[in-house]
Write a protein that binds this DNA or RNA. Structure first.
Lengths: 350, 350
DNA sequence: ATAGTAACTGGGAGCGCTTCCAATCCCACG
DNA sequence: CGTGGGATTGGAAGCGCTCCCAGTTACTAT
């Protein structure tokens, strides 16, 4: 309603602008009595500080940027995106920061990057990039804006990131399938240009290698983290008769499940199946999905904390944070030839 | 890198700050030659204007707020959320605006609302509220900040909104099921506190009423738009032997599907099923889901356009925008007793 | 009392931009 | 060659806040 300024409040409270500012920012050196008086005026006139003026004067807007690459087709069908956002926003809420959101659409990429780099606006940026060579990374570095990436960066050691150990998690899942006795284990990979996809493939290969098994080209089908790609990949795998399939995401695993159902293959009797992520729906597929649980929400929260820390200490060394995953064993991986017990939903802590 | 100001560029280009400002903002009254010179300097020093200073001086930050109510449990499992965001962000990208995002968590609600109402920061707000009595609405009105709600407001005619005709869409879907010959049509409703849920229930009742059928309490089960609630609701419906079920969302329909599968009921032979939304996965359930398609992404884009219009014309009357839906007929609704043809994916334009 | 010190308070100078408004320039016209 | 008026340009006044510094007040110790 009324557009009061600091000055107005000051006049009403019979003090100076500076004193009101001190009270608002909870600074010391204000007499308790004065503070009371100002507080009362603040309340009475329902004063809201002007965030922009404040930001200009102080140089910090308390706003963080959050950037998602549009090049990821799974972004709008996977709950990954909303869950991650939730984690970040909750953390921001709790620490009185706000968030600006961008999707870098290729056709507007330059403009989007310009917006993100606008001076004064953002205190720092979280890049949910996962892409191999996202131009936003270079732009942020050139501009000197603090940022954290969700998903490790393969080459540049100066970049702070938060991630799970995709390679080892995948390796353990495949090792588990091997322990169950499966030998023709196929994989449906994520996109080539996403680091998580490449890492999970590496883990798959490592597990096979450790067991003395040579990977077979026909047992590796590339997907792009979408359901449809999982479906198509499974169809390509079928002629090579896998006895188990490790899909690099739960979403692709459901696609594989659909393909298997269509040709009358039973899971896990004919083909065992495992996914990655432990999305909410993974417990409700038929059969429920064995998978690797990654703490998506926590990933967002830790990214937030890391960024805030980075903003406060601009010259500190880069932070790297690997969060733990756990295997979630459900019916889709079956009991294997060993008859190993899995339990309804037993979990293995890594 | 270098933190140049307008003044610096002006000096370099041998003109005044004002002129540089004019060039940047593409204003007339600059001699073409001067403009060239300034443009060159701008380019050479890679000048980025300070968005905050600009915002303070001009009173417009070109930032929109986007508010989601956390009270909606489906928010993080339904693709509705990301698709809507996508629609809004694409529109913003194309029109050189940015977006700030908030989830109003009940425990931080006051603080969140304060952040949103901060003076100077936002030019306007899009509320993806759908809730019956969201306090943010009253707060925005009191503050006089332009805003648009996605989902109609049941009582206040001064509020601008964008929506689909939930009531009629639901009515048509149920009428379609009636035409197929189903008579014991049950419904799984959305949450009571969401207007869309209430509207779809009304449409269900209207269709039955138009056909002279009295609704039966046992055939109405309340859900909350989540898969789990659809599953539970279906279990409650089973004893009442419906021959068809209209779920108020595709997500709940998949829950119902799971419950039906568990007790060995075939869809559509034993129970026909219809959903609402036409989420990407609806075409891939087993059987594929008959549903009402609503243009979620477009909803976001139109909300954006409406808001921008509202910001430009603060005194214009409220805008109300109803986007069309269409019935998407797939296998889950069956052929009914009439043997009506549905085709693999025939659509009916409303 | 009185100096000395600590606790407060107010004023002013910005933050980097927009936006008037007055000043200057330039050219066609007389 | 002078002159009016539109086209350009520069200067100054903010936008509403923070933050520094000097000034004022209020005590304590002597």
């Amino acid at each position: 309603m009324s557009d009061l300024t600091l000055e107005d409040i000051a006049k009403r409270a019979g003090v100076s602008r500076s004193t009101v500012s001190r009270v608002i920012n909870n600074q010391p050196d204000v007499h308790p009595k004065t503070r009371q008086r100002v507080l009362a005026a603040l309340q009475r006139y329902d004063y809201q500080p002007n965030a922009v003026a404040r930001g200009l004067a102080s140089g910090r807007m308390r706003i963080l940027g959050l950037v998602f690459p549009m090049g990821v087709p799974a972004l709008f069908t996977d709950p990954y995106f909303p869950i991650l956002i939730h984690g970040i926003l909750s953390a921001c809420n709790a620490h009185d920061r706000s968030v600006m959101l961008w999707l870098t659409e290729p056709e507007h990429e330059c403009r989007t990057i310009r917006q993100i780099l606008q001076r004064g606006l953002l205190d720092g940026v979280i890049v949910a990039s996962m892409l191999m060579d996202d131009p936003i990374i270079a732009a942020l570095q050139a501009r000197g804006l603090p940022f954290v990436v969700i998903g490790r960066h393969p080459t540049d050691a100066r970049i702070s990131y938060v991630d799970v150990d995709n390679r080892n998690s995948a390796r353990e899942m495949v090792a588990y399938l091997l322990r169950l006795g499966y030998r023709r284990i196929a994989t449906i990979t994520g996109s080539r240009n996403m680091i998580a996809g490449a890492d999970r493939l590496e883990g798959y290969l490592a597990a096979l290698g450790a067991c003395g098994i040579n990977s077979e080209a026909g047992l590796i089908a590339e997907g792009d983290f979408t359901e449809a790609s999982g479906y198509a990949a499974m169809q390509r795998l079928l002629p090579h008769v896998p006895d188990a399939v490790f899909a690099a995401s739960d979403t692709m695993a459901t696609g594989a499940l659909r393909a298997l159902r269509e040709v009358g293959k039973r899971v896990p009797e004919d083909v065992a199946l495992a996914g990655f992520d432990d999305m909410p729906f993974a417990a409700r597929t038929e059969p429920p999905l064995t998978t690797v649980r990654q703490p998506i929400q926590r990933l967002g929260a830790v990214a937030f904390e890391t960024l805030v820390d980075l903003i406060a200490n601009p010259n500190a060394p880069p932070r790297r944070n690997i969060l733990p995953t756990e295997l979630v064993l459900r019916a889709s991986s079956g009991l294997g030839s060993q008859g190993e017990k899995t339990g309804a939903e037993s979990k293995t802590r890594r």
